[in-house]
Design a protein around this nucleic acid. Structure first.
Length: 523
DNA sequence: AGAAGAGTTT
DNA sequence: AGACCCTAGA
DNA sequence: TCTAGGGTCTAAACTCTTCT
């Protein structure tokens, strides 16, 4: 290779390394031996050091850079990151199809795109003139955290997009959404190293991916085997006079051409029957993948039809997630514990003999309410079946009656509050039983907790333990009491040093700048 | 060094 | 992120 | 009578900061 100038050679090397990165990390198809790649990388690094004027943020050498962050900045999403409606059966998919026909006033069959539903964490990425400039977590859907430095280390994330021969061409500003995940083999590899180093192992790919993205030191993130799939382009097809895209399948092809890692297993389907076939197929094949999926995402393909259907406040009407059947486990129900919420509602939860299920050790589960326990005749001492709703929240689904102890008794909900002893009343027509004492410490604490929570006044440093103490010590009787706390009072609390007290008071001060809407919700 | 507590994610 | 319940409105 | 929307519950893993 004959280089004309350092600048030319640098650009040549970058192009080459980008190409090799893409083959290796996106296509899983290495084009060169490691030592050849390392040689080119070293040469580029040397040239960039010798000619510092040539360094650019989209160079393959710049995936890790700089010092650890102090914290993550907040990023407002241009469009909210919504969730999807869920379905758990083929009947529900057929109902979804009917709802679309009704909504559009048209007969099917409709064109759908079926994709795998990855089990990772959602991210939103921004590109300016084809260069990756910012990446954020989902957060509450409206505002997330700026994890750009960590995302830069994800090798399948293109720092620079391929602009040539793209039709339509790359826009100046571009935002895409996708899922960061860790492969099963990647997790094994990391855990082998951690075992070796005497460090605790990670429990499952999803949580290790989520944790890895929250490291303040991106050089550590770089050592975690994170990967990425992109599945959404924002604003595709509108606004603007002429739609640039007509269908989601066209968008997916375009994303791939632009250099994004698009999962190859998506499928165009004509009619819901073909979608169901796809779901059945992947319920079987999922075990063969090196990454976890928890279902299938079904989307109407044509963008103009999507626009006509619109969305509800929490999810688009033109898409549906189909969730695979959840794993189950059998364990012993040790006790039923009653928790008292901020509205006084008594909610039963199950204490379980710990059991490993779908990547976590489960020792608690929700029992929803009194009627639910009665319906399923759940008793303390029973062997019960549990599963995780949406792979997240454990719940008791059934009792193994054959294993029931002979002396077991039906469960009776207490008619007094377990915290303050006041009468717990269930109003006619109501499902929940409530503690009748508005001054009940549990209710007071929960009201204050709600007030300080993110989404409400977002007061940093006011967690459950702090609220517990200030209420117990009678320093705070209602939310207004938070604003009269002072350093001397705080100094008397457990685990409350100078730094913590300062941080909390700063958090309280900061909360005074929240808007009226937030205040209203907080109360 | 180790643990508690808070915050964030699914 | 799911399940459930209640309310309001078609 | 159905359903969209809002509210209120629930569990576990992980990282970071601060305290002991």
């Amino acid at each position: 290779m004959q280089e004309s100038s350092p600048a030319g050679r640098v650009e040549e090397l970058r192009e080459l390394l980008r190409k090799y990165d893409y083959s290796y990390y996106v296509l899983d198809d290495p084009q060169v031996a490691d030592f050849e790649y390392d040689r080119l990388y070293a040469e580029l690094k040397r040239l960039e050091e010798e000619h510092s004027e040539l360094t650019t943020p989209d160079s393959p050498t710049r995936r890790v850079g700089g010092r650890p962050l102090e914290g993550f900045a907040q990023v407002a999403h241009g469009e909210p990151m919504l969730s999807l409606d869920n379905s758990y059966s083929e009947e529900e998919l057929i109902e979804f199809d009917r709802r679309i026909a009704r909504g559009l006033g048209e007969e099917g069959p409709f064109d759908y795109v079926a994709e795998l539903k990855f089990d990772g964490l959602g991210v939103s990425l921004r590109y300016e003139n084809g260069v990756f400039v910012q990446g954020a977590t989902r957060g509450d859907g409206r505002t997330g955290e700026d994890v750009t430095a960590n995302l830069r280390t994800v090798r399948s994330l293109p720092l620079k997009l391929k602009g040539e021969n793209l039709s339509p061409p790359l826009p100046g500003l571009l935002e895409v959404r996708g899922e960061v995940y860790m492969t099963r083999s990647g997790l094994e590899r990391v855990n082998a190293q951690r075992r070796e180093a005497g460090e605790p192992e990670f429990a499952n790919p999803r949580n290790s991916a989520a944790g890895s993205l929250r490291l303040l030191d991106s050089s550590l993130t770089a050592k975690r085997p994170l990967k990425l799939f992109i599945y959404q382009l924002l604003g595709a097809g509108w606004p603007g006079a002429r739609p640039r895209f007509y269908s989601h399948s066209q968008v997916l092809s375009w994303l791939k051409e632009a250099g994004f890692p698009v999962n190859p297993n998506w499928c165009s389907c004509v009619g819901i029957k073909q979608v169901i076939g796809y779901c059945r197929r992947w319920a079987e094949l999922r075990e063969e993948l090196d990454y976890n999926i928890d279902g299938v995402v079904v989307k109407l393909d044509h963008l103009d039809l999507r626009e006509r259907l619109g969305r509800t406040s929490k999810a688009p009407r033109w898409a549906m997630a189909y969730k695979f059947a959840a794993e189950q486990a059998r364990t012993r129900l040790l006790a039923i514990e009653i928790q008292v919420g901020r509205t006084g509602a008594l909610t039963p939860t199950a204490r379980l003999e710990p059991v490993f299920l779908a990547g976590t050790t489960v020792s608690n589960a929700t029992l929803h309410n009194e009627d639910e326990i009665e319906r399923k005749d759940i008793r303390v001492g029973d062997w019960v079946w549990i599963e995780k709703g949406g792979d997240i929240i454990p719940k008791v689904t059934a009792v193994d009656l054959k294993a029931r102890p002979a002396d077991s008794q039906p469960y009776r909900m207490p008619d007094s509050c377990p915290v303050c002893g006041s009468r717990a009343v269930r109003e006619p027509g109501e499902v929940v039983r409530r503690c009748s004492n508005a001054a009940c410490p549990a209710q007071v604490k929960e009201r204050i907790r709600h007030f300080t929570s993110r989404g409400a006044m977002d007061i940093e440093g006011a967690g459950p333990a702090l609220v517990d103490q200030v209420v117990e010590k009678d320093l705070v009787r209602d939310v207004a009491g938070l604003y009269t706390l002072n350093k001397e009072e705080l100094a008397g609390l457990e685990r409350m040093g100078e730094k913590s007290a300062e941080n909390l008071l700063a958090g309280i001060e900061d909360s005074k700048r929240r808007g009226a809407a937030r205040l209203l919700f907080a109360l």
